[in-house]
């Protein structure tokens, strides 16, 4: 079987999508390409189907919250969503990153390209509050349906309870619910 030589993902994307590619970066041997969310689905389809790229496996989608957010070239918006693609043919990884605004964090879904994205996107919707437009299942995934807020945001409190010691145990037990009473 003839295998076409691998292409450079950044060059190929810049050639085809031009201004939709925001920047490309190398860190510890990993390539990150930030793209415009509007054309995310086409870019994913392109990365999956183009000979020489064939990123045919979606490893992970993770979201990161840059709170408190100071806009910069590298981090234009508060929420970043990182798609980790893997090419089984060329044995290499690629990170595609999109950014979502603080007020209306919406990113289009890529469920049409990678069905595996369905749950990964739902997890981010639940935990980070970034909406994925077009995902058929918009229910919460991990937290109960009536939960308030999105726990993985940096401004969401940890929800710690004060640790009990002998000096404060009585004070805490006054407020702590108990089934045995």
């Amino acid at each position: 079987m003839h295998i076409p030589p691998p292409l450079d993902a950044t060059d190929a994307l810049k050639q085809h999508f031009g201004a939709d590619v925001l920047y490309s970066k190398q860190f510890r041997g990993e390539t990150t390409i930030a793209v415009n969310p509007a054309s995310l689905a086409e870019i994913m389809l392109f990365l999956r189907n183009t000979p020489g790229l064939v990123f045919n496996f979606l490893s992970d989608i993770s979201a990161v919250d840059y709170y408190p957010h100071i806009p910069s070239d590298e981090r234009p918006e508060r929420f970043g969503v990182a798609y980790h693609l893997y090419s089984m043919l060329y044995n290499r990884r690629l990170r595609v990153k999109v950014f979502a605004a603080e007020e209306t964090p919406v990113v289009p879904t890529i469920i049409g390209v990678f069905p595996a994205a369905g749950w990964l996107e739902r997890e981010i919707m639940d935990m980070m509050g970034v909406k994925f437009e077009g995902n058929p299942d918009q229910r919460r995934l991990l937290m109960p349906d009536d939960w308030d807020g999105h726990p993985h945001r940096r401004d969401y409190p940890m929800g710690k309870e004060t640790v009990q010691f002998s000096f404060n145990v009585e004070e805490i037990l006054k407020h702590k619910p108990s089934a045995s009473k």
């Binding site: 937290m143 726990p151 969401y156 409190p157 940890m158 929800g159 710690k160 309870e161 640790v163 009990q164 702590k176 619910p177 108990s178 089934a179 045995s180």
Partner: peptide, 21 residues
Amino acid sequence: SCGGVYNNYAIVQGVDEIIPV
């Protein structure tokens, strides 16, 4: 018994809040 290492939003801090132990 008490939430263990997970003192956070998701874990009930001791099951005795729900049922008598």
